[in-house]
Simulated scan of single mutants.
Amino acid sequence: MTDPGISVVICVYTEDRWEDILAAVSSVRAQSYPALETLLVVDHNPALKDRLAREYKETEGIRVLPNAGPRGLSAGRNTGITASHGEVIAFLDDDAVAERDWLRRFAEGYADPRVMAVGGRTEPVWASGRRPAWFPEEFDWVVGCTYRGLPPGRVRVRNVLGGNASFRRTAFEAAGGFATGIGRDGDRRPLGCEETELCIRLTRARPDALLLIDDRAVIHHRVPAPREHFAYFRTRTYAEGLSKALVARSVGASQGLESERRYTTRVLPAGVARGLRDALLARPGGAGRAGAIVAGVLTAAGGYVVGSVRARRGGRTFSAAPIQPAPEARPGSGGGSHE
């Protein structure tokens, strides 16, 4: 099998992350396995779109385009998928930088034609320079990072994590795109789980599909100072419960909560035990970590109950966009064009 061409999609929305966006693009340009193209999809921010268009006007292989759908991350990703030309589409958060072999590790995973998605490991970069003593590694998903409890190596998983992931184009042609109405959409509440819903829908459409995580495909994700505080932790875990309720509504609780059952019955109790042990040994943050795990479970459960009630009452809805085959490459489409 020939090495796949990989398009990289970076969804952006605010000029407050200008330096982060430039760093993300630079990390893609420095890959040992070159990207076919990099698409910067701007979420309903004309000023940012124009600024990025000027910044990369003469840069080969980078395109800047507006989100063609409703406001939000899912629609932005779908816009990038539709506009891209690669056999594989990779997604990188706009406040993250990829290690040099990031795309190479993704490409290696697709040597098996059954593989439809490959994700990687996301490491936090704390604004304060170090992990808050109370913040449990089991909840690093709160800040968009790989959490304790995921298996090491290159392993099969139910779903990849959206900020550091790749999909074969045929996966979207089989299952459709990311569902709008589940993930972040510009509201204050930090919803998520759109990649979980997509991956479950994909394995239903393609029962033979393999979804992998390779922990050698590493990115480093910036965690801003406000997200180091318990107030954000509480808000994010509650929003996760709301999102899980939407996923369960879409694909059923048996699949929608399959991984979460193991996580809550095995990983989290072990985390509480470690925290209490550290507290008894007078190690910093032990009691705080144990308490944060308990609080996170209870808050997420509360969000799930509320989300389930809203779903039964016909609340928030979502839909998965159909994805067309790759567009024909246009002259000059490999670099510097702005749509």
Rank of each mutant, 00 (worst) to 15 (best):
W18F: 06
G120M: 02
P136E: 00
R227V: 08
E260A: 15
R121G: 03
A282C: 14
R262T: 09
A179D: 03
I182E: 01
R283C: 10
T235G: 15
V157P: 04
D140P: 11
L52R: 05
A270E: 08
V306H: 08
R189A: 13
H229N: 12
I182G: 02
R189G: 09
P136R: 00
I62A: 03
T317D: 14
A245Y: 04
R131N: 10
D43S: 01
E137K: 13
S254C: 12
Y304I: 08
A320I: 00
E108C: 05
T59K: 04
R71E: 12
R131V: 11
P325W: 04
Y263I: 09
E258N: 06
G177L: 06
L298W: 04
G109S: 02
A90Q: 10
V251D: 02
G271A: 08
V8G: 03
F135E: 06
R266V: 15
E19S: 14
A68I: 11
L246R: 08
T122W: 08
A53S: 06
G296A: 02
P151K: 05
E339W: 14
G315F: 05
A217V: 01
P34H: 10
G119M: 05
A83Y: 01
L212M: 00
T122P: 01
T265Q: 04
G271E: 02
M116A: 09
P132T: 06
G307K: 02
G176D: 01
S74C: 13
D95L: 02
P284L: 03
G252P: 00
I293V: 02
W134H: 04
R222A: 12
L39K: 07
A225T: 12
L212H: 10
A270S: 07
L210W: 06
L276Q: 02
R63P: 11
L257G: 00
T2Y: 15
V8F: 06
H44T: 13
A133M: 15
E258S: 10
R29P: 11
V28T: 10
E108Q: 15
I10N: 13
A287H: 06
A90S: 02
A98C: 07
A30R: 11
W18D: 03
H44W: 14
E197G: 02
R131Y: 12
L161N: 10
V97N: 02
G192L: 15
T122Q: 05
E60H: 13
E240I: 14
V305T: 08
L103C: 07
F139I: 09
A175Q: 02
P224R: 05
E258P: 03
V28C: 07
D43I: 03
G129A: 14
K57G: 11
A300V: 05
G183R: 01
R310I: 07
L65T: 00
V272Y: 03
E108W: 12
G72Y: 10
I89Y: 04
F139A: 04
L257C: 04
V88Y: 01
D93V: 03
V251Y: 06
R216H: 09
F167D: 01
G61K: 08
R316G: 05
V25P: 15
T237F: 07
R130H: 12
V143H: 00
T237L: 09
G241S: 03
H85P: 09
V9D: 01
